[in-house]
Design a protein around this nucleic acid. Structure first.
Lengths: 339, 339
DNA sequence: CTGTTAGCGCCTTCAC
DNA sequence: GTGAAGGCGCTAACAG
């Protein structure tokens, strides 16, 4: 009581209270060595009484593990990183690992700065989260801790990257439209420089070929905005009035397209089925009749990243290469009429 | 070279390389004590060569500062916490402080768990971020580190809370509508159990009184969804066709209301001005003509929280009570016609 | 079964 | 100006 400065109980306080030595207290609490059941109980209750929590700093000093993981992201605003982050936090928080969050805000210098900071804090692993599915520069191979890249894969194949399977996503979208009996399908995407735009298109093409169909018109690329969704849909419907379905590479685009469709007197989904991408709930679930969409299981992506890090910390060989994780179709009222 | 296990250089490596003792190396690098300029230079260059970074774990064990701050939130999915988080990260990241992110996901037990974890990691301060403006339970006064509550204020007035000024927000919204010449104004909000719904209404009332106006109909409360925005607007426009403006307590509600207005043949903003709340860009900026909204400056909120924590760490007396931070009006095409 | 001893990496008196 | 010694809280060898 008298000597403690900060009021935080230490292991010696516990040992003293239980009338045993430091070492015995340690063993008792960690289940190591042979300790008499009675002694162990005494130590445990003393620890409980004093609200003792082992100091991770001291522990980490010895074990050369800090029990922390760094999460390096490039934009906190992006709606992709959040579910990933939540998934990772979930998996990590379950144990006694804490997450250092670092937002580089897209600046390479800031990223380097944060990387150094994380390493000097002796994190046990690093998860790098991007907000585009395009490859990003690797942090390098000489990092002394395991690294996993999520959403944005690393450009170095020796790294492990987890990213959603956009090809299958595009395929699923088209297959669903086809299974709804649609035959005259158009495609609207955002900025063509995004792999998300082209990969989904590639998947879509495969599915179209398999169904012996051809896209109506050319893929419409411009920007990832609701505005473009409106404009592109208007252009398409004017030039190809026979269109009976549109695959939009984002939910925002789809929202815009639905708006236009309604305005031009097309009933959704009866006359025109529209499918989005991302399954971004605020948009997809709130859309008038619900928006069918492709969900990338981002939470799962984050969770798996965290688990890989764990395994690597525990000495497992970390695999490498870009892993494409499964996506799933979420059907709502924009492709199938509600009753 | 031979004895190091993990390859990470320690201070003694530096000392050895510089041909001085441990203590001297420490002093040289930290600018303490009197060290000959030549010696200091030698040590510094050795440290640089070896890429030495002091181990924060060891440092934290001794000093009572860890250079870390805990960020305790209740939902990572919520769109309010993110800008706050970004603001805080920004302010903190500028120095050499790192952020521990903890998501309690709304469970009190998880929150307690994370709180203990943070304290045992010897964080220098804690920022508690909520996603509703309603008061939340205080973490208590006996925490040994400074705590700031953001967005959700603490229910204990001895704590420091930073939350947006919803009253002024409601007021600004009405004043803007009035300044646009509107006189027959209605109000749509979400769940009435949210203070956001009632506080904004209170501010709106004050502004209405000041303008010698009365609300058309009663405030419409139900849920914070786009669906409710559509339904509420439809009900209002049917019962009170003379309405010339609607104040919606969220952007989602406003989006729904705009949809309905257009459907019923009302031109926005000519026949009906609509103002939202939150200035949530994906919705507000992408709406067809742009959505006028109230922005709570969440980034600023987070930044200030971080700064308060800093000050408190530096020994400053931390103020207490709930501080309402200013909000601002963002005018777009839903209240003022574009040319 | 329990206690003593020696560090993990760093910083801070205190002598020299 | 410099170095030797002690200790932060904990765990891992050893002895007893």
């Amino acid at each position: 009581m008298s000597k403690r400065k900060s009021g935080v109980p230490t292991l010696s306080d516990v040992a003293e209270a239980a009338g045993v030595s430091l070492a015995t207290a340690s063993k008792a609490l960690n289940g190591r060595g042979d300790v008499a059941a009675a002694t162990r109980a005494r130590v445990e209750s003393a620890a409980f009484e004093l609200r003792f929590t082992p100091n991770p700093l001291a522990r980490g000093l010895l074990a050369s593990r800090s029990g922390t993981v760094g999460l390096l992201t490039n934009d906190l605003e992006g709606r992709f990183v959040l579910p990933i982050l939540a998934g990772a936090e979930d998996a990590l928080g379950a144990g006694s690992v804490n997450v250092f969050l670092c937002d580089a805000q897209g600046y390479a210098v800031r990223e380097q700065h944060h990387l150094r900071a994380l390493l000097s804090r002796r994190v046990d692993g690093i998860i790098v989260v991007g907000s585009r599915t395009d490859a990003r520069r690797s942090l390098g191979q000489e990092l002394s801790v395991p690294v996993v890249y999520v959403y944005s894969p690393s450009d170095d194949d020796r790294d492990l990257s987890l990213t959603p399977d956009n090809l299958t996503g595009g395929q699923l979208a088209i297959e669903h439209l086809v299974s709804c009996g649609r035959k005259r399908i158009a495609y609207i995407a955002g900025d063509q420089s995004y792999r998300a735009a082209t990969d989904r298109w590639e998947g879509a093409q495969a599915a179209l070929r398999a169904a012996d169909l051809e896209l109506v018109g050319a893929p419409m690329y411009s920007e990832w905005s609701e505005h473009w969704g409106r404009d592109a849909a208007a252009t398409l419907l004017e030039r190809y009035p026979e269109i009976d379905a549109i695959f939009c590479a984002s939910d925002q685009l789809a929202r815009g397209a639905i708006d236009t469709a309604r305005e031009l007197g097309r009933r959704v989904p009866e006359d025109l089925a529209i499918i989005g991408y991302d399954n971004w709930l605020p948009l997809a679930a709130n859309s008038r009749q619900g928006l069918t969409s492709i969900d990338a299981n981002l939470g799962e992506l984050g969770k798996q990243a965290a688990e890989r890090i764990f395994q690597a910390i525990d000495g497992a060989e970390i695999p490498h290469g870009v892993h494409h994780l499964p996506v799933r179709l979420v059907i709502r009222g924009s492709t199938i009429a509600r009753r």
